[in-house]
Design a protein around this nucleic acid. Structure first.
Lengths: 269, 269
DNA sequence: CGCACAAATCTTGTATCCATTATCCTTTGA
DNA sequence: TCAAAGGATAATGGATACAAGATTTGTGCG
């Protein structure tokens, strides 16, 4: 991927998810003129700032695994790739640092954060803690509208199942979970959860990409919805706990092997 | 990790405080610089970057209430106050935005975050959720060393009780809670907790400053330690829940009044 | 008198330039 | 031959300059 032109797209204020269109391009122009690509959004569109656009793209590249753990990131290299000066890249990295995806050291630049296995476990334990609490609060307050929205996302997930786009699947997965808890009406908690998910996402993607089938997860997702619909709070929470814990177990198993391989490599190197 | 490094350390070569003090009157106390000497432990001194120094100071000013909720922050004004260019200030604001203390909007600059009463409630519910979990994990693993450290902090809190420095008290409070959970050995969770505490801190300070006596809180703190020492896990957790919930209740009561007053003012204005 | 449009001003955003710092490599001395 | 010191190089950090967006003010027309 050589160059990237960012196009301004509308996005709801708090929604971190956004889309950047990457194209091959090498002109270093002030690309601020292609903002006319308003993508079918009639809401109050807030244009995304350049640093945010870059941050989103780098974030995606990290989650993809394109920028591997422990890799040191050179501001200038990125700046040239995106055809902008180092300044927006710096701000983007600062943001990602705050999100915990990269680590900024004083005059040494940024490295992609690498979590220990213990920390990965922690992430999932936190998810269980927070998500179950949210779910419990949500179930009592769920309306048909909430259920309907969950249904819709679920169907999207099932149909885009074959797409094998782990990135898309990951964000859909969060969106679904988030929809399950929407009735709890806890924006701030959901934000915290989002940040935490961001950390686990990249490992989940590794998991997904080697997973033969996603049926169990999909089935569990539907079960969660049905239990919620039936108002079986405790069963639903237990199921949710099990669902996340299962992912944690599988993932950690995978990561142990992966890390072991990496250690071998680095030793033999 | 990301959120862990807040206090401390100056810049050996260029003394930032000196430059700042040259800008006479506006008593911008960089308290961090003074802690320079306490490093003692290792030579692994972490030099603080200028943006971090500024971020720490602005953070303190927000928590102090010096920069009130909803206030819009002008980059240039701050830059001039600190005697630096807008660049480090921008990065500092970016950081604070990520921490949730200010909100950055596209071409509109930064405003100090204002939480709704519901959100303040959420913050405390999150604290209960996470802290109780940590405490439960910690109690089983507590060693005499852990208990000793808790004791020390507790004593510091009791002696500095009369100081009436709510800022100091707030960070000591977090430090104590953190020490209680240290045995759980969950760095990442603790970081998340730190961020969340940062949000509640400024409201807690308001609470403290109007509170006649801190005896109940201090007593509860000691009780927590004793219960943990005795290994009474469930009682300890219940006590912790009650401790935080109590703060929440008192605080919300206070905030309801405060917000009501503010609304009156803004209406009559 | 009021509303609307335009210009001026203020504030933020981006680029470029210079200073500072870390790393690497070479050189010198033991 | 190895290690330490010093210099060269490349990357980051910060400042100034300039461009773009937002708000406010002023003027003209209905």
């Amino acid at each position: 991927m050589c160059g990237a032109v960012y196009s301004f797209v509308g996005w709801p204020v708090r929604d971190i998810q956004l889309e950047i269109q990457l194209e091959e391009d090498n002109c270093i122009q002030n690309a601020k003129q292609n903002e006319n690509l308003k993508v079918a959004s009639k809401r109050a569109i807030v244009r995304q700032s350049l640093p945010d656009a870059i941050a989103s793209d780098i974030r995606e590249r990290i989650l993809n695994g394109e920028l591997a753990e422990g890799l040191t990131i050179r501001q200038e290299a990125l700046a040239e790739e995106y055809g902008v000066s180092r300044m927006p890249v710096r701000e983007a990295l600062k943001r990602l640092d705050a999100e915990g995806l990269v680590q900024l050291t004083n005059n040494l630049g940024a490295t992609v954060t690498k979590h220990s296995l213990d920390e990965i476990g922690e992430i999932f334990d936190l998810r269980i803690l927070i998500e179950v609490d949210l779910f419990r609060r949500a179930i009592a307050a769920m309306t048909p509208a909430h259920l309907k929205r969950c249904e819709e996302i679920l169907e999207t997930m099932e149909t885009s199942y074959d797409a094998d786009d782990v990135g898309k699947w990951g964000s859909l997965n969060f969106e679904y979970h988030s929809a399950l808890y929407a009735a709890a009406n806890r924006g701030l908690t959901n934000d915290v959860l989002h940040r935490i998910n961001l950390q686990s996402d990249r490992y989940v993607r590794m998991h997904l990409s080697v997973m033969e089938q996603r049926d169990p997860a999909t089935r569990e997702h539907r079960e969660l919805l049905e239990l919620a619909r039936a108002g079986k709070t405790e069963e639903a929470c237990a199921q949710l706990t099990q669902h996340i814990a299962q992912t944690k177990t599988n993932l950690l198993k995978l990561m142990v092997d992966k890390r072991a391989d990496e250690d071998c490599e680095s030793l033999s190197r």
